[in-house]
Simulated assay, not measured.
Amino acid sequence: MVDKVTSGSFASNLAVPYLRDGLATLLIPIPSVLTELIGRIVVQWGAFELRMDALVQGTSTALQREPDERWQRLPFKKRKTLFRELMREYLSRTHQPQFAGEFDKICGTAASLHWKRNVVAHGFYQMAAPESGNPDDNIQFIAHGTHNGRDVSIAIQEDVLTELWHDIAHLGGALMVSAVKIGAALTHPELVIEDKWLLQDQPQGSFQSLPIPNTH
């Protein structure tokens, strides 16, 4: 029995067991290499927000300054502001003001990446003719959204998405490296690897991970 069916130029693999006689399927002709990158962007950003929120909770507890009980439901921009305020206060009280700039930089980078992630994850995707004008070339996709009241768009291309994915991964890495410096205690182990080890093309499994602390 055939497990998948490929819809010609749409390059969309459909699982036969989930197709139903009498139903119709909407096909979005985005190449799988792009949908994989979109997924990586979404997952990587969620991982960053989770860890930022964990630091908000941890520092607020240490400062005995519990934020509003609904703080986790606040939009990212407001939670980021709360994070920055708490980190500045915590570092001041623990006599580590030299690290405040690192967290300020993380917040600034997060702000510049957040709107891009949102457009990719939640934007309206428009199909456009190939830039070459050749109808045999791949259809182009552009994601449209808004940022600070302005219309914005991002080209859904492999190089653009790959850069955004790595930028967000570096953002999460920077957050964890700074957390290590101030002695943050996390509730689970982390896999954070310095790029210099990845660039050395070491055999799989031999990378050196940063010594992220955990409470287990």
Rank of each mutant, 00 (worst) to 15 (best):
S7A: 11
V160C: 14
T162N: 14
L55M: 15
T25W: 04
P135N: 13
A128Q: 09
A155M: 15
I38V: 07
L82R: 01
P130S: 02
W71N: 00
T35S: 14
R93D: 02
R84T: 05
S209G: 06
L74H: 00
D137P: 11
L198G: 08
R40M: 04
E163S: 10
P17T: 12
W71L: 01
D136P: 03
V180Y: 07
D68V: 00
G133T: 07
Q157A: 15
T35L: 14
N148P: 03
F10Y: 14
E190S: 06
E69P: 15
F103D: 00
A143T: 09
S178P: 01
V2Y: 05
T81K: 06
D136R: 12
S206I: 08
R51C: 05
A24M: 07
P135H: 15
H147L: 11
L26V: 13
Q200K: 11
F76A: 00
K196A: 12
G172R: 07
A15F: 06
W197M: 07
E158C: 12
I41G: 01
G108M: 13
F99W: 10
G22W: 07
E66G: 10
V5I: 13
W115H: 10
A143K: 03
T187W: 03
S132V: 10
R150Q: 12
Q72N: 09
F99E: 00
L23M: 07
S209C: 06
Q157S: 15
K196C: 05
A121P: 01
A54P: 03
Q200C: 14
K80T: 00
P31T: 01
G145T: 00
S132G: 09
V192S: 05
K80Q: 02
H114W: 13
A100R: 14
L113F: 13
